[in-house]
Simulated scan of single mutants.
Amino acid sequence: MNSKEEIVSITFYEYPKRNRWWAFNQMQLAIEPLKKAKGVKFFKLMGTGGGFGFSLKPDLKTYALLMVWNSLEFAKNFTDSDAYLRFNQQCRSNFTYWMQCIQSHGTWHGQHPFSVNEQKTDGPIMVITRARLRWNKILRFLSQVPESSRAAAGAEGLIYTKGIGEWPAIEQATFSYWQSQKHMETFAYQSGHREIIRKVKLEKWYKEELFARFVPINLDKQGADSPSR
Results as ranks from 00 to 15, higher is better:
163 G>N: 06
67 M>T: 06
229 R>W: 10
173 A>H: 04
14 E>A: 14
214 F>D: 01
82 D>Q: 15
172 Q>S: 05
184 M>W: 00
206 Y>I: 05
87 F>W: 05
193 H>R: 07
149 S>D: 00
74 F>T: 10
228 S>A: 13
126 M>K: 15
34 L>F: 04
29 L>P: 04
144 Q>P: 06
132 R>L: 09
80 D>G: 14
122 D>M: 08
161 T>R: 11
173 A>E: 06
206 Y>T: 01
202 L>M: 04
115 S>F: 10
152 A>V: 07
61 K>V: 05
177 Y>A: 08
175 F>I: 01
192 G>Q: 01
87 F>I: 01
158 L>N: 02
69 W>P: 06
51 G>D: 02
113 P>N: 04
145 V>F: 10
99 M>R: 07
32 E>W: 05
169 A>V: 06
10 I>F: 08
108 W>E: 03
218 N>D: 15
54 F>L: 15
202 L>H: 03
197 I>E: 01
220 D>F: 12
86 R>S: 04
14 E>F: 05
200 V>Y: 01
161 T>E: 03
147 E>Y: 01
129 T>G: 08
124 P>I: 00
168 P>K: 09
153 A>R: 15
31 I>L: 00
58 P>M: 07
44 K>L: 07
20 R>V: 14
164 I>L: 02
141 F>G: 08
156 E>H: 03
214 F>P: 02
69 W>R: 08
89 Q>V: 14
59 D>K: 09
192 G>S: 12
182 K>L: 10
34 L>R: 04
143 S>W: 12
143 S>I: 11
192 G>E: 00
2 N>K: 15
155 A>S: 12
205 W>L: 02
216 P>I: 02
175 F>P: 00
193 H>L: 07
210 L>K: 02
190 Q>I: 05
180 S>N: 07
185 E>V: 05
144 Q>M: 05
144 Q>S: 15
110 G>E: 00
210 L>I: 04
25 N>Y: 04
41 K>P: 11
17 K>G: 10
168 P>T: 03
114 F>C: 09
209 E>V: 00
13 Y>R: 12
28 Q>W: 14
131 A>Q: 08
206 Y>H: 07
142 L>H: 06
207 K>W: 04
153 A>W: 12
65 L>Q: 06
45 L>T: 01
186 T>Y: 08
58 P>C: 09
151 A>Q: 09
51 G>F: 11
217 I>G: 06
98 W>H: 10
16 P>R: 13
90 Q>M: 13
16 P>G: 06
6 E>L: 07
181 Q>I: 01
110 G>Q: 01
